[in-house]
Amino acid sequence: MMQSQIVSRPRYRDLAAEDTAGAHLLIVEGDTLAAGQMAALATAFAVVAERLQTWLVSAPATALAPGRVRRLHTVEEARTALEHIEDGFGIADRLYLQGTEPFMWSLATAAGRAGLSPTQIRMQHAGSLKRRVWCTHCHQTTENVTTNIATCAGCARALLVRDHFSRRLGAFMGVMVDAEVPGEVPQREEVFR
């Protein structure tokens, strides 16, 4: 389900450092780390190692990382840290994100508020395909959705989870599935494991 015909759906690719003169910040969702992944990242970022900072979020204490390492407990903590980064970001800086989509987009939108342009942000998906779903009816978001039909955390409607994605909200669209004929709800399937 990572590929879609719907072109608003972001496409992610393997991270590679861009050798720019600015600072390089890599933020990794620690609990999605697979064996060997950190070694691959260390290789991919060797060229900017001197200007690299890596933030490990909710990672096992034993996890190693390239560059200067900072450990954070939650995505909220990382988001706050991004928004209060000392002296702000420079135009030649780059931000690299690796993790689930809700993790990456929480941080990408925070970086945007801190002035970073989308063209300065790179993303690589890792871990679960779980989605953040935005309800078109009550405008609340429901986290950690792994099924094609989800119950809205705001209005409790059964939402069909569409592939249409908003980068500003970091969320997929959810639309009431049985609006036309109440109760006509298709089988719930776990498709975003």
């Binding site: 072109v7 608003s8 908003s166 980068r167 669209m173």
Partner: peptide, 16 residues
């Protein structure tokens, strides 16, 4: 939905 689509580029907004 404008609230969902606001800020999207031309291709994203016509995505569906």
């Amino acid at each position: 939905s404008l609230a969902f689509n606001v800020g999207m580029n031309f291709m994203e907004w016509h995505g569906p």
